[in-house]
Nucleic acid binder design. Structure first.
Lengths: 140, 140
DNA sequence: CAAACCGTTTAGAATAGTTCTAGAAAGAAT
DNA sequence: ATTCTTTCTAGAACTATTCTAAACGGTTTG
């Protein structure tokens, strides 16, 4: 077993990203990256941390999420004005968005095939292509 | 000339949508739909209205934009958390988004070809597919 | 045309989500 | 240990948006 150094992988990831492995960052990273991929808002993560043993301020949650985003450990998904979602799945993929419940669901990248993309305008380069499939309850 | 009934088309559109053609709605509709397609935020439209002859409250701008959106006269585009953009172009199309400047640009739908889309989950139907091509300044 | 009716507008307050601030705490360096 | 610097915190501030209650204005009716 490797229980002696429980979070060495996480610590290394943080260090590599130029982030000191503080108690708070480790605790949040643990919540986020242990177990499968997740979608959540800052408020949700904060509530979850408070519910668990972890005591972090909301400001720290926001800071940490942005730092993790910049470091490529997670990504922000914009589907709704006035609310930021984050996604720990860093594979190339897209999203279903349930407009009623506000729920997000991953769509594997091979299920959405983009066979044509326009050239970026002069002096610009594409940083990312987001495909959001908005869903409503069917009433058949 | 047809200056006698200058906005009869707009008036009819509003009536058809179940909206009374009030002074404010007509003035905003005029700003929005005369001249080509546009991207803007509520604040921008409000500022523009104030700059012109039109006196409308910000709350009315928000109300009107949502009513127009629901009526299918324009559509909301979500590209950035914490800020709503609206687009008067109702043709099927997608968007470039300049992450630096916050500018939006239309991408004709035949420039983005989606050859595969996943089935919507049970009991759901697709209401819209948004493709957002995020751009950054190239530094070649 | 007047009166009444109800949708609409308004200014300002309220709210939600996020960011900022200044001081306290805690890793890291010496 | 001491210093140095980054990070954390609570709470204030800020931004975009929505709500509220009262005033207004189209519209319909008599």
């Amino acid at each position: 077993m490797t229980t002696k150094r429980p979070y060495s992988a996480l610590i290394d990831q943080l260090k590599t990203a130029g982030l000191r492995p503080t108690r708070q960052r480790l605790a949040l990273a643990k919540l986020l990256f242990e177990g499968g991929n997740r979608h959540f808002t800052a408020e949700q993560l904060h509530a979850e941390a408070m519910g668990a043993e972890v005591r972090v301020s909301l400001a720290t949650v926001y800071n940490t999420l942005h730092q993790f985003n910049d470091a490529g450990l997670l990504r922000e998904v914009v589907v709704e004005a006035g609310r930021s979602y984050f996604d720990t799945n860093m594979d190339d993929h897209h999203h279903f968005y349930m407009e009623g419940s506000g729920e997000l669901q991953d769509v594997d990248c091979d299920e959405v095939v983009l066979t044509a993309l326009p050239d970026a305008p002069e002096g610009m380069k594409v940083s990312r292509v987001d495909v959001i499939i908005r869903l409503n309850p069917a009433n058949d």
